[in-house]
Amino acid sequence: MGAPTLETLTVNGIRMRVAMQGDGPLVLLCHGFPELWYAWRHQLDALAAAGFRAVAPDMRGYGGTDAPQSVEAYSRLHLVGDMVDLVRVLGERQAVIVGHDWGAMVAWAAALVRPDLFRSVIGMSVPFTPPDPTDFLKVLEDRGIRDYYMQYFQPPGVAEAELERDVSATFRRMLFCGSGDWQGLPAFGRLQPGQGFLGHMEEPDVLPAWLTEDDLDYYVQAFRRSGFRGGLNWYRTMRLSNELMAPWRGDIIRQPSLFMAGTRDSVLGFPVIPGLIAAFPRTLPGLRGCHLLNGVGHWVQQERPEEVSELMLDFLRAL
């Protein structure tokens, strides 16, 4: 297949850079932190080859897409609104929505609030979390935890300064230590005393087989231009998004759904995650599969692209 085409569209009041490939039923691909449309490079190719119209935006605050100044402009409903309007701008009436990491939170929420528009949903690394009044940051505080990475990301400017000091080193550390190749402390969890987010991470002597220097350079060049503020602001609206999702508390996703994650993904070590996955029969009655890929870390669709693409296509063909 050919390479994806990149276009800048006006979506939900912002300029959004979008990678597009193929023709057929629309599949929207939502990346997570700190990534770009490029995280889906393998799936764009596979979906297009299989007869789908694959579209992967740089999400709000990332890459070639606008990054509004106001922190409040990154709430869950803003992000879902972007995907709803993107479907309209693309001239479509329905889509399958796919998300990884924070993008999974957007995909699940989009399927929850607009089942008419998003006929099915695939989430990766982060399971469906039904809206409820629980304030995760307050739960941490009540347990006496003050050193969790999500807490470190809250004050504006602090994490930006660390991550932007040496963008190349940041990505070498994050992509390696978030992957199944890393044998050290969990990449996403509690921080080491007196160290920032990257303090316990190491740069690899040699890049893992799934990541080339060209791949790395694509991320590095983009984040040198944009910085990390936009992506970090997604974390800074956690409480606001919790409040805004109140109308859907107790609701479930009835459309066909699929979940996949890597067994070595440190996100699966979050205390709430096992309970969320165990609740799938109730919260995701349309679930068509829950796949835990052995030995894979957080960057599941990049670490194991062929397997992830095949699971996606099996799901899509059966719809």
Score class of each variant (00 low, 15 high):
2 G>L: 13
2 G>F: 05
3 A>S: 08
3 A>W: 02
4 P>D: 03
5 T>H: 06
7 E>C: 11
7 E>W: 05
8 T>E: 05
9 L>Y: 05
9 L>V: 13
10 T>C: 13
12 N>A: 15
15 R>A: 15
17 R>T: 14
17 R>Y: 07
17 R>F: 07
22 G>M: 14
25 P>G: 14
26 L>A: 15
27 V>E: 12
28 L>M: 14
31 H>P: 06
32 G>S: 12
32 G>M: 13
34 P>G: 14
36 L>D: 07
40 W>G: 13
45 D>Q: 14
48 A>M: 06
52 F>Q: 07
52 F>S: 08
56 A>C: 02
60 R>S: 02
60 R>M: 02
61 G>N: 02
62 Y>P: 00
64 G>F: 01
68 P>V: 11
74 Y>G: 04
77 L>S: 04
81 G>Q: 06
82 D>C: 09
83 M>C: 05
85 D>C: 06
87 V>G: 05
92 E>V: 08
95 A>N: 06
96 V>T: 15
98 V>T: 11
98 V>W: 00
106 V>L: 03
108 W>D: 01
111 A>Y: 01
121 V>K: 07
122 I>V: 09
126 V>L: 02
127 P>G: 10
130 P>D: 01
131 P>M: 03
132 D>I: 03
132 D>N: 07
133 P>K: 14
134 T>K: 09
134 T>V: 06
135 D>E: 00
135 D>A: 05
137 L>T: 00
139 V>E: 01
141 E>H: 04
143 R>H: 04
147 D>L: 03
148 Y>S: 05
150 M>F: 01
157 G>E: 02
158 V>H: 01
160 E>N: 07
161 A>L: 05
164 E>V: 09
164 E>G: 11
164 E>K: 13
165 R>N: 10
165 R>K: 15
166 D>H: 12
166 D>I: 11
167 V>H: 06
170 T>Q: 09
171 F>R: 10
171 F>M: 06
174 M>E: 03
178 G>S: 11
180 G>N: 08
181 D>K: 12
182 W>P: 00
183 Q>W: 02
183 Q>S: 14
184 G>L: 09
187 A>R: 11
188 F>K: 10
190 R>A: 07
194 G>A: 14
194 G>D: 05
202 E>H: 10
208 P>Q: 12
210 W>K: 13
214 D>T: 15
217 D>I: 09
224 R>T: 08
225 R>C: 09
228 F>N: 06
228 F>A: 10
229 R>K: 13
230 G>F: 03
230 G>N: 10
230 G>T: 12
230 G>P: 00
234 W>V: 07
238 M>E: 00
242 N>L: 08
244 L>M: 10
244 L>T: 09
248 W>M: 04
250 G>R: 13
251 D>P: 00
256 P>H: 12
259 F>D: 04
262 G>E: 03
268 L>P: 01
271 P>F: 07
272 V>C: 09
272 V>L: 10
273 I>R: 13
274 P>K: 14
274 P>A: 15
275 G>A: 15
279 A>Q: 11
279 A>P: 01
280 F>A: 12
280 F>R: 14
286 G>Q: 15
287 L>D: 08
288 R>G: 12
289 G>C: 14
293 L>W: 04
297 G>Q: 12
297 G>F: 05
300 V>H: 08
303 E>H: 13
304 R>A: 15
306 E>K: 15
310 E>K: 15
311 L>D: 00
311 L>N: 07
313 L>S: 09
318 A>P: 02
319 L>K: 11
